[in-house]
């Protein structure tokens, strides 16, 4: 595991910063999108950290039923939109 991912505080900050930066154009992301933040880590380790952030309330899930996405808590539309913001 990389030092960044291993350090909960730093990892959380990196994720929140990345999401905040993206927020203007997009609020919901696939798990794979987070791999970019931690290029040296295994998907399974990254998934554990991201899911932990949902438990601690920084992030929230959005699910269509078949796919799950992640976003900052409260960001963007809560139900699906049809392209209108």
């Amino acid at each position: 595991m990389s030092e960044l991912l291993d350090n909960t505080e730093a990892a959380t900050k990196a994720v929140v910063d990345w999401l905040t930066k993206k927020q203007k154009s997009k609020t919901k992301f696939y798990i794979k999108d987070f791999y970019k933040i931690f290029p040296d880590d295994k998907p399974r380790a990254i998934k554990k950290v991201i899911n932990k952030m949902v438990e601690t309330g920084e992030l929230e899930f959005w699910s269509s039923g078949s796919t799950t996405m992640y976003g900052l808590k409260g960001a963007g539309k809560q139900h699906s939109t049809e392209g209108e913001e």
Binding site: E60, W62, S63, S64, Q78, H79, S80
Partner: peptide, 11 residues
């Protein structure tokens, strides 16, 4: 289609 619902700790 879809939304933010669930129970705590479950995705």
């Amino acid at each position: 289609h879809g939304g933010i619902v669930g129970v705590f700790g479950y995705g």
